[in-house]
């Protein structure tokens, strides 16, 4: 760690920018990266990595509970024996696959937004040079599409829950249905957090945030969002194969 810090250079150390804390950070055209940009980017990436660790632990706990329960016999007082009463939920597979596709697609569109922002940051410093065109702003639409896809995923999950309910599978019906709702619900709750971050990024220009800030928000939210996609695939696989 010590050596890593050495390589970053001294200027940024102890440089405590505070987001929205009184206008400390202003984008200055003409310079490729504003002061402290990489420090902030690194800090937010680190924070997302740490945050994801805690999210992982929440799902590790739920997963181990799921596996233990799925493999556990319960004592039956009538037959005086342990019975394996795990009745797996009939997953609405087509719908869930479609949802998965939507979520994967949203990761792609988010990546497009991130690339556009980066390209804009690079070309912004080159205005006035002959033959160089400033990269047009396309991140907002890409982010908009990502938001729509994210909400479509949530709507799809909602449809999946409705389908299960119509089959008479409610939260409390049996252990596997309980786990289905808890796992998908916990994932959806975390996804909503990602949506809020993306919403902030998409409308950051409206809030008067600089390009650099938007880049950082999109980058950090991007890591979180991609992880949510991976987490969903993991949960889907767990529900599908772990029964």
């Amino acid at each position: 760690m010590g050596t890593l810090r050495q390589s970053v250079g001294g200027s940024g150390r102890g440089d405590n920018f505070r987001e929205g804390g009184g206008g400390g950070e202003r984008y200055r055209p003409g310079r490729y990266e504003p002061a402290g940009y990489y420090e902030r980017l690194r800090r937010y990436r680190l924070a997302v990595a740490v945050l994801l660790l805690s999210v992982i632990m929440i799902f590790v706990a739920l997963t181990s509970a799921y596996i233990v329960r799925a493999g556990m016999g319960t004592y039956d007082t009538v037959t005086h024996s342990y019975v394996y009463d795990w009745k797996p939920v009939q997953l609405p597979n087509e719908l869930l696959l479609l949802n998965t596709l939507v979520l994967v697609l949203s990761s792609g569109t988010l990546e497009m937004a991130r690339r556009n922002l980066n390209a804009r940051a690079v070309t912004a410093g080159l205005t006035g040079l002959p033959g160089v065109a400033v990269e047009p702003e396309r991140s907002a639409p890409w982010l908009g599409i990502t938001l729509v896809l994210g909400m479509a995923f949530l709507a799809g999950q909602f449809l999946a829950w409705r389908e299960l309910r119509s089959q008479g599978m409610f939260l409390a019906t049996n252990p596997s249905s309980s786990f289905f709702y808890v796992l998908t619900g916990a994932h959806a709750a975390h996804l909503i957090g990602g949506l809020v971050a993306l919403f902030y990024a998409a409308f950051a220009t409206v809030f008067g945030k600089s390009l650099a800030t938007r880049r950082i928000v999109v980058d950090a939210a991007g890591w979180y969002w991609h992880f949510m996609g991976a987490l969903w695939i993991y949960i889907f696989a767990l529900l599908h194969f772990g029964k």
């Binding site: 740490v50 660790l53 805690s54 999210v55 992982i56 632990m57 929440i58 590790v60 706990a61 739920l62 509970a65 939260l171 409390a172 309980s178 808890v182 916990a186």
Partner: peptide, 22 residues
């Protein structure tokens, strides 16, 4: 960071057992 998430999960499940019939 590693411990409180697990308690949070457990607490959530216990709340559901008490109030949602799981």
């Amino acid at each position: 960071l590693l411990a409180f998430g697990v308690l949070l999960s457990g607490g959530l499940l216990l709340l559901l057992d008490r109030n949602a019939g799981t």
